[in-house]
Amino acid sequence: MGKIDRAKRRVLRQAVADNLETIRGLPPRGVRPNVRRSRLWMRRLSIVALPVMLAGSTFLLSKPVTEPMFVVQRGAPHKPLAAAAQPQPQTLTTYEKVDPAALPLNVHRVVIDAGHGGTDPGTALPTLAEKAVTLDIAMRLKKLLERGGFEVITTRTDDHLIPLRERAHIANVSSSDIFISIHVNSIVEHTSEHGVETYYLGPTRDAKLTKLAAEENRESGYSLADMRKLLDGIYMDARRDESQRLASAIQSQLYGGLRNADPGLQNWGVKRAPFLVLVATEMPAILAEVGCMSNDAEVEKMHQPEYRERIANALFDGIRTYATEKK
């Protein structure tokens, strides 16, 4: 292929995707039932995997998974970061509310998924839990997106555990255009390092990423072997290309938007990993690790509403960049 411009590359990708859908025998997008191969797989697997899931649930319930939560409650008064409801007056980029009808975007509806919640705190420090940070950033991002003319669906708006399958279901039934899952990293082996990274669905040979995915997928009840079967059915999906573009746009804005406030921040780039929440969603989907809670300096920043607002702004810029490219 010779050098061609971006617009041509985009329409070519879409033309190829349309052909692949025809080859697969899928009906046109407009009339396609809200069911994809991944969901069919899940339905089939649900019969086979039910005992596994039940065993998994029992195992999880019997394990002291509430222990980190207990640590959180034991520590200094950790409050949900309720400041999200009233964003601080800020000097960062602000956007005036616009009428959605005037905004000719292909991306209209965005699902924001605040990672963890309820009995699953994610990374839990004495004064801060990942679940609270992700929820706070999600609420800030929701406001920004709504002001920017997008419609927003959230998988959770309070401190409750929503299973991964349920999160994917919320996204799928809402016929949303993109799915953004917000998480915060923790690398206890390298506490001096901190950075941002964005994932989209795909296979990985990196043992660390496999471990990370296993951690994030823990509450699902699926084993990695089950998930491999799920993934086999969708690796060829044209959605992956779109997810990669979305991940690139978000990663670029995330790093660009935060490095000024945090000069030591590292850009860990766009990566592929088999997170279950990305497998089961039916739209371009990414998982952003917006910071690193194993780094003390960053934890300090995470405590600041301004910094969380900055993260939300960076995510918004990434979504807007992707949406603008889609026009």
Binding site: Q14, A17, G30, P104, N106, K327
Partner: peptide, 8 residues
């Protein structure tokens, strides 16, 4: 043409 592969 709207800069994308045309939909229905």
């Amino acid at each position: 043409m709207k800069g994308r592969y045309p939909t229905e």
